[in-house]
Design a protein around this nucleic acid. Structure first.
Length: 790
DNA sequence: GCATACGGAGTACCA
DNA sequence: ACTGGTACTCCGTATGCG
């Protein structure tokens, strides 16, 4: 019979003598189904040395390895663009490809074995064009549910599924949860601290809270939570931090009570798998924390901040800091607040999931990485898999990831800004500069010509400065990848124009074009990543060399056209806006450099200091665009950022600093009188390694150590929020984690001298007001309070 | 013995 | 755990002065 299904997840199922691939899906009637593939044959390639005779090598393979090898076949492939003869070796046991390949590498005539490092599930998806989060049709036979998996029906696949062109997503059952663990000794540890509260929000509208008993025993809670998931039977479980914390914690707690956390669709427990994601058989586990890198505007990546940024949940509703959880739990008056926070957290998780899972599904489809780990995988690995798919299509063998030394190279060119205020400045941007350079000059690992090789018949492109050459023909691997991505995005955006943005279809297309854009823009970076399967250093080097040449040439063309260049960075030029001249310049650039430039923002007025990568512009609509300055940095106190932003607004709008100076005075006065909330004084910094590994006693590290002393676990990647308190000694001995600090112990002078005034003076210096001037006047003047100022 | 200068460590930004 | 270019603070020691 034929079965139409949408692919939710795939996992290998290995028993002693059987190897199956389990494809979890939803059929066109909305039933949850399991399709079992028993005909998967794993293989790898044996690449031969130049003169080697494939038949001789095959004979040797069959003599020594007949036990493991099911089949051999001589095939023609390419490797880094060059034709190679290879032997496709199919293994009897799919779990042993890497092992057999390792042995065969030792044979005479064999230069290498390739693709033995591609996991069975990925091999299957890529070879058959089966797509995670996509619809398929397959010939199947229903079979008894001997494994007692919790689905509507089990089917064996009689042929590999064929992808269908249907962008729709079936109605999924989604469950979000958030947990609270009880500890007086810092970070909760599963061997000693119970989970006292779990809140859930489900796509059917149900909300639940599972609560530990009077003695804080969590046995019943865990049992009920597990049973509830089984009963609701979600397709997708959403959480925040589940990969790093929640699942192992809950599993550990369950085991402590001799319970199993076996809610999945096959009776297994959650387990950590590739890229560090937690896999739940038959269900997609999505950790929305994995999306946080997509939003650099959110500096402190808590669930509440993240949700607020996305407009999810009740804005400004109370947050209970980790440090206070135990206190709230113990206090009957405060516990309801913690309970509300927990439920609100589950709602936030659910809401964030609703907004972002569309994107993840599209990224899964593009890369073939299943939904449960496509967002856990780093950008480089997503590009890797996208390219593996393309390689399979064009017969290019997939290189292994090699351990090799990294040597950095020269990147983009940054022009020095002309300090001060400028009126009417246009930003000229090269559209997708690196992708287009790579397409135009056919820069790719398979078109690179080694320095000792002659130019090929079709000729070559030679990169400026570095001199690397690339074949003009045929089109390289990257050119094909990029052209396809750019075209598909164009088509998607075209289709979107005809749709109402409120429709589901529009939303899906928008998610897809975003995924395509992100992948496109990552390919240049990937090319320069030493871990890339197709890493060839000159590829990235040549692209950036062309980039520098292009921006420099464009800058010269602008000046020749009589357009002053006030700044430029990598792929942008800031020039005086004279419409006729700029239009002409655009055309000249296209002719001269073969690349499109577009006019981006046209600022009414813009302000530069002497520093590169830092400026503030006044847009046509009167809003401010601040770039690089303290205003948009996460490691300055809010009070300093606000002061600088307002100073910028005044000087950009009024073109004089007079009011800015009195404004600074008023804030300093408020600060000295402690009229500002403690929150505005927190400085957040990230730990980039374990605290004990630091060479110097940096303030945030000292603050982290104070938290560690109280049992809070902090490590690489964690943000530390601290304030500076009054007292004796060096700054790094006067820091306090913000959760322990009170407003009246703050070192006000530090905030005036090292936060507010430097941020203000950075701008005001160009109006001949130095920090010293500000210091003097703030001390002398009887200043107005902030409220009077407004 | 103390203030200041300066290089290195550390972080976060722009493209 | 995709790239390089850049600004900036703070630490900690070297340096200079008295």
């Amino acid at each position: 019979m034929k079965l139409v299904f949408w692919l939710l997840d795939i996992n290998p199922k290995v028993d002693e003598d059987t190897f199956e691939l389990w494809l979890w899906g939803i059929d066109s009637e909305g039933n949850r189904v399991l399709l079992v593939e028993r005909n998967f044959a794993a293989y790898f390639y044996v690449v031969l040395h130049g003169g080697a005779n494939p038949d001789v090598v095959i004979q040797e393979i069959m003599e020594s390895y007949a036990v493991e090898v099911a089949k051999t076949e001589v095939v023609s492939r390419r490797f880094f663009g060059k034709p190679v003869t290879a032997i496709k070796v199919t293994c009897k046991n799919p779990t042993k490809t890497a092992q057999v390949a390792k042995e065969l590498r030792k044979l005479n005539g064999v230069s290498d074995c390739l693709e033995d490092d591609i996991r069975a599930a990925m091999r299957y998806l890529i070879d058959n064009g089966v797509v995670p989060c996509g619809w398929h049709e397959a010939e199947v036979a229903e079979e008894p549910n001997t494994q007692k998996v919790r689905v509507y029906g089990v089917f064996s696949l009689l042929s590999s599924p064929k992808p269908l062109d249907n962008p729709n997503v079936p109605r999924l059952r989604t469950l979000a949860f958030s947990m609270v663990c009880y500890s007086h000794e810092g970070t909760p540890k599963p061997d000693r601290n119970p989970t006292v509260l779990i809140s859930t929000v489900a796509s059917n509208g149900e909300e639940h809270q599972f609560v530990a008993d009077k003695n804080n025993n969590d046995k019943q809670l865990l049992n009920d939570f597990n049973a509830y998931i089984k009963k609701f039977d979600p397709d997708v479980i959403v959480n925040y931090g589940g990969n790093a914390t929640d699942w192992t914690y809950l599993k550990s707690r369950s085991h402590k009570h001799n319970l199993k956390l076996d809610f999945d669709r096959a009776g297994f427990e959650p387990h950590t798998s590739v890229y560090g994601h937690v896999s739940v058989t038959g269900i997609v586990n999505v950790d929305v924390a994995d999306f946080s890198d997509m939003f650099p505007e959110v500096k402190v990546k808590t669930l509440a901040n993240f949700a607020e940024h996305l407009g999810v949940g009740a804005a400004g509703s109370g947050v209970v800091e980790d440090v206070l959880v135990a206190e709230y739990w113990d206090n009957p008056k405060k516990r309801p607040e913690l309970e509300r926070f927990s439920l609100e957290s589950a709602r936030r998780v659910y809401g964030v999931g609703e907004l972002l899972v569309d994107f993840a599904m599209q990224m899964a489809g593009l890369t073939s990485l299943p939904l449960d780990h496509v967002m856990t995988a780093a950008t480089g690995f997503r590009v890797d898999w996208y390219l593996v798919k393309l390689a399979q299509k064009i017969g290019e063998l997939v290189p292994r990831r090699l351990e090799q030394q990294y040597i950095s190279y020269t990147g983009g060119l940054v022009l020095s800004p002309k300090p001060g205020l400028h009126d009417n400045i246009a930003v000229l941007d090269f559209k997708s500069m690196y992708p287009n350079i790579m397409i135009t000059y056919n820069i790719s690992p398979d078109t690179y010509i080694e320095p000792d090789q002659p130019d090929p018949e079709g000729g070559s492109y030679k990169a400026p400065e570095v001199g690397y050459r690339f074949r003009k023909t045929p089109p390289g691997f990257y050119k094909e990848a990029l052209t396809y991505l750019i075209n598909i995005r164009g088509e998607l955006r075209q289709k979107m124009l005809a749709l109402n943005p409120k429709t589901v279809e529009y939303r899906i297309l928008d998610a897809r074009q975003k995924a395509v854009k992100i992948l496109t823009n990552a390919i240049y970076g990937y090319a320069g990543w030493v871990g890339a399967r197709w890493y060839i250093k000159p590829v990235a080097e040549a692209a950036s060399a062309w980039g520098r040449h292009i921006i420099l040439t464009a800058s010269q063309l602008a000046q020749q056209a009589g357009l002053g260049v006030v700044y430029g960075d990598t792929d942008s030029l800031f020039i005086n806006y004279d419409k006729a001249k700029v239009d002409q310049l655009q055309k000249d650039i296209k002719v001269e450099l073969k690349l499109d430039v577009e006019i981006g923002e046209v600022y009414k007025r813009i302000f530069f200091t002497e520093a590169k990568k830092r400026y503030a512009g006044l847009r046509q609509d009167g809003t401010l665009d601040v770039v690089g300055l303290e205003v948009i940095r996460g490691d300055w106190a809010e009070v300093a950022k606000q002061v600088q932003e307002h100073v910028l607004e005044i000087i950009l709008k009024e073109q004089t600093h007079k009011n800015a100076v009195s404004y600074v005075h008023s804030v300093v006065s408020d600060l000295r009188h402690r009229k500002l909330p403690l929150d505005s004084l927190i400085i957040w910094k990230t730990l980039t390694k374990p605290p004990e590994q630091y060479a110097v006693r940096a303030p945030h590290v000292e603050a982290a150590k104070l938290l560690l002393e109280k049992g809070w676990r902090l490590g690489s990647g964690d943000k530390v929020g601290y304030v500076v308190v009054a007292g004796k000694g060096a700054l790094n001995r006067r820091v306090k984690p913000h959760v322990f600090a009170k407003l009246d112990e703050i070192d006000v002078d530090y905030y005036v001298t090292n936060q507010v005034l430097p941020a203000a003076a950075r701008i005001l210096e160009f109006f001949n007001v130095t920090q010293k001037d500000l210091e003097k006047t703030t001390k002398e003047e009887k200043t107005k309070s902030l409220s009077e100022y407004f």
